[in-house]
């Protein structure tokens, strides 16, 4: 009995440093931020609350509310587009590419995943610019008569994001696909299903966990990202993280930045609650 107690004491001692770190540098700062979100800016002074004026402003002032919708719209478009593009890619790599080339194909398909985030956005600016390689080719082939403006629009942001998340989703869906026993497909074929029916009615539902895990990660990372919309989308249409950075930079308005962050956090939490039953975060 005392041995067991000693075991528990040792176990607790081992966990303690990590827990302390999480409390000191994750829970406390978060609490400080929530407290800050109920303070108020008067001139250049921060007046402690509680005051819910920031939250009321977020949901009543059009420029602020607009950022929430812009973020949600972009994230929704990117998530759907990425799933639609990544699923066939993962499926082709898992079923059409010969087994000995699969690791290589997968490694190539996610290679830019490992580039620095800032560099990846920059390289899309390079490709999509007015004199970039895409416009150059399209005009050169006389598909377009003159360059079309893509940079500093929502399209550029969506392309940059989709590029990143297609790679992420290809990984999660591929790892889901290769775990499936080929017997499911064989059984369905024996029972008279067409090739299309096998994919639609058997394989697709079985890959739902991989799709949902990837889509959730896409949602979280996309809605909270500042770099891609800032470099590619510019300042014409602000997303929530851009708005948060704007509050910090230009005005030093920490209370408003904090309130916006709490709203961002709440949206992620809602998304998590929405797909919690398919997510196995422990295994990621």
């Amino acid at each position: 009995m005392s041995l067991e107690r000693q075991e528990k004491r040792h176990g607790a001692a081992l966990v303690a440093p990590a827990l302390l770190w999480a409390v000191a540098f994750f829970v406390l700062p978060f609490a400080a931020m929530v407290a800050m979100s109920t303070a108020k800016m008067v001139g250049r002074e921060i007046v402690p609350g509680p005051d819910f004026g920031n939250y009321i402003r977020i949901f009543t002032e059009p420029p602020l509310t607009r950022a929430i919708f812009v973020s949600l719209e972009i994230t929704a478009i990117v998530t759907i587009l990425s799933v639609l593009l990544a699923w066939p890619l993962a499926w082709i790599i898992a079923t059409r590419v010969p087994a000995k080339w699969q690791r290589l194909a997968l490694l190539l398909a996610v290679l830019p995943f490992w580039t620095s985030y800032v560099v990846r956005s920059y390289s899309w600016a390079l490709v999509l610019g007015e004199k970039g390689i895409v416009m150059n080719t399209l005009v050169g082939l006389h598909i377009l008569s003159e360059p079309v403006q893509i940079m500093a629009t929502r399209t550029a942001t969506v392309i940059g994001f989709t590029h990143f998340f297609v790679m992420l989703l290809t990984l999660t869906i591929y790892s889901n696909l290769v775990q499936l026993s080929p017997n499911y497909a064989r059984a369905a074929e024996d029972l008279g299903a067409s090739r299309w029916q096998v994919i639609r009615l058997v394989i697709l539902p079985l890959t739902l966990p991989g799709v949902v895990t990837g889509a959730f990660l896409t949602f979280v990372l996309c809605i909270g990202d500042y770099i891609t919309p800032q470099i590619l989308g510019g300042n014409n249409e602000l997303t929530l993280p851009q708005l948060i950075m704007l509050q910090l930079g230009r005005r030093g308005d920490y209370p408003m930045a904090s309130a916006l962050s709490v709203v961002l956090m709440a949206m992620v939490t809602l998304a998590y609650a929405g797909c919690a039953r398919w997510l196995k975060m422990d295994r990621v």
């Binding site: 540098f25 994750f26 700062p29 978060f30 400080a32 931020m33 800050m36 979280v220 990372l221 809605i223 909270g224 990202d225 500042y226 993280p241 948060i244 950075m245 910090l248 920490y254 930045a257 904090s258 962050s261 961002l264 956090m265 992620v268 998590y272 975060m281």
Partner: peptide, 13 residues
């Protein structure tokens, strides 16, 4: 599951 931006902002404050 928390955006880096939120972690950064909390720590900054």
């Amino acid at each position: 599951t928390v955006s880096y931006l939120i972690i950064a902002l909390g720590l900054l404050q």
